[in-house]
Simulated assay, not measured.
Amino acid sequence: MRIQLEGKTAIVTGSTKGIGLATAKALAAAGAKVVINGRTRDAVRAAEQAVAEAVHGACLDGVEADLSTAQGCQALVAAQPVCDILVNNVGVFGPQDFFDIPDEEWSRFFETNVLSGVRLARAYASGMAERRWGRIVFLGSESAFNIPADMIHYGMTKTACVSVARGLAKRLAGTGVTVNSVLPGPTLSDGVRAMMAEAFEDSGQTIAEQGAEFVMQQRPTSIIQRAATVDEVANMIVYACSPQASATTGAALRVDGGIVDSL
């Protein structure tokens, strides 16, 4: 199967690192014009360079905007008023005990992980429906169903993303616009690598070995018994964005390595 997205404009939020950057590279390789987003100009430029080096002739644009605020989302829409593919990837995470999480942190997680995607989908989905083609992907997580006791606020936001994606798919029924959520499990993104580097300091293990040990300690139901790579997650996202996925909508597409123990 060859995915071809020539003539399509794809926005990937939070695409300067990790899953977002891997997704930007994969969409560019499929021929889409890709809009890189990050909070700082330097980060956006570095990501654009990384994609350009990975994909010869990549068509790229960059928008510096903090999407944890309504103003940042408005700035992105003003800079890129037309979008065919929207990947709502931007997000924050981090372990914290429930009794230590202040209201402000609950709000920050919800604004960043959920409302950024809601605001952008609201801005772009009508145009997609008018053109009778569009793809919207929300990044969920296995934590949407398997709420981690040490990241309840994070799990809550990912459950919300899955719910929004399902409801919006129904709202856009018959328009040619699909809306799905993609649910990674533990993934060797920059953030996870940093977290593991602290936990496994001086262990002498490779990053892959650290990831496998982390998974078996924290997510023992994993069937692949290792962490996923960012490219493995990006592959699922790109498929959901492709013409070939035209009958897939309202779905929660799991790239969790089998952690969620259900059929």
Rank of each mutant, 00 (worst) to 15 (best):
V82H: 10
C83Y: 07
C83L: 13
C83I: 09
D84Y: 07
D84T: 06
I85D: 10
L86K: 02
N89Y: 08
N89K: 06
V90A: 15
V90E: 09
V90R: 00
G91A: 11
G91R: 04
F93T: 11
G94H: 08
P95Q: 12
P95H: 01
Q96P: 00
Q96E: 13
Q96G: 08
D97Q: 12
D97Y: 06
D97P: 06
F98D: 00
F98P: 01
D100H: 03
D100M: 14
P102K: 07
D103W: 10
D103I: 05
E104C: 07
E104S: 15
W106A: 05
R108L: 14
F109P: 05
F109Q: 08
T112H: 05
T112C: 13
T112R: 06
N113S: 14
N113Y: 13
V114W: 01
L115R: 08
S116F: 05
G117P: 03
R119T: 08
R119C: 12
L120N: 02
A123C: 11
A123V: 08
A123N: 06
Y124I: 10
Y124N: 11
Y124H: 02
Y124C: 13
A125N: 12
A125D: 15
S126M: 03
S126Y: 01
S126H: 01
G127Y: 01
M128V: 12
A129V: 11
A129E: 10
R131I: 06
R131D: 04
R131Q: 05
R131T: 13
R131W: 14
R132S: 14
R132L: 03
R132P: 03
G134F: 04
R135W: 03
I136G: 08
I136C: 08
F138P: 03
F138L: 08
F138N: 09
G140K: 02
S141V: 00
S141W: 01
S143C: 13
A144M: 04
A144G: 11
F145A: 12
N146D: 09
N146W: 00
N146L: 07
I147E: 04
I147M: 07
I147H: 00
P148N: 08
A149Y: 03
A149M: 02
D150K: 04
M151W: 02
M151E: 10
I152T: 11
H153D: 03
H153M: 13
Y154V: 05
Y154I: 02
Y154N: 02
G155W: 06
G155F: 10
G155M: 02
M156F: 15
T157V: 12
T157E: 13
K158M: 02
K158T: 01
A160I: 12
A160T: 07
C161G: 10
V162C: 15
V162Q: 05
S163C: 12
V164L: 11
A165Y: 00
R166Q: 14
R166A: 15
G167R: 07
G167P: 05
L168A: 10
K170P: 00
R171H: 14
L172K: 04
A173S: 10
G174L: 09
T175E: 02
G176N: 02
G176A: 07
G176V: 09
V177S: 01
V177I: 09
V177W: 08
T178W: 01
T178H: 14
V179P: 09
N180D: 07
S181Q: 04
P184H: 10
G185H: 00
G185P: 05
P186D: 09
P186M: 06
T187W: 05
T187I: 12
L188M: 14
D190A: 10
D190M: 05
G191H: 03
G191T: 11
